[in-house]
């Protein structure tokens, strides 16, 4: 199997995720897109572990999975809070930082 297979697949997922982050308006959808990005990174890590015949990559993938779980938890809690305060989770209405 070519080494590039996994990496290219990961690149595709990554770019789709990036597109999602840019294009989506719903905060939950943005979080889902971030999950796509994180998974593509994990795929890369596992692929590198396979290529180097070393499980370190898998260990890092596990760490990323754990961090991702924490990130989703906190992220959704924030979304919930925003929803409770503003009755909307549309990101383009959140523009207090407008200069």
């Amino acid at each position: 199997m070519l080494a590039a297979n996994f990496l290219l697949l990961a690149a595709v997922l990554f770019c789709i995720g990036v597109f999602g982050v840019i294009a989506r308006r719903n905060a939950v959808m943005v979080l889902m897109s971030i999950e796509l990005v994180l998974n593509s990174v994990n795929l890369n890590l596992v692929a590198f572990a396979l290529m180097n015949d070393d499980v370190d990559g898998q260990v890092f993938a596990l760490f990323v999975i754990a961090i991702a779980a924490a990130e989703v938890g906190v992220g959704l809690a924030m979304v919930l809070l925003i929803y409770r305060n503003r009755r909307s989770i549309s990101l383009d209405e959140l523009s207090e930082l407008k200069g």
């Binding site: 770019c15 789709i16 990036v18 597109f19 999602g20 982050v21 840019i22 294009a23 989506r24 308006r25 990101l91 383009d92």
Partner: peptide
Amino acid sequence: NNKGWAIGIPVA
């Protein structure tokens, strides 16, 4: 989607 969602396509 955002109003400016199309910008995602070239970036991606």
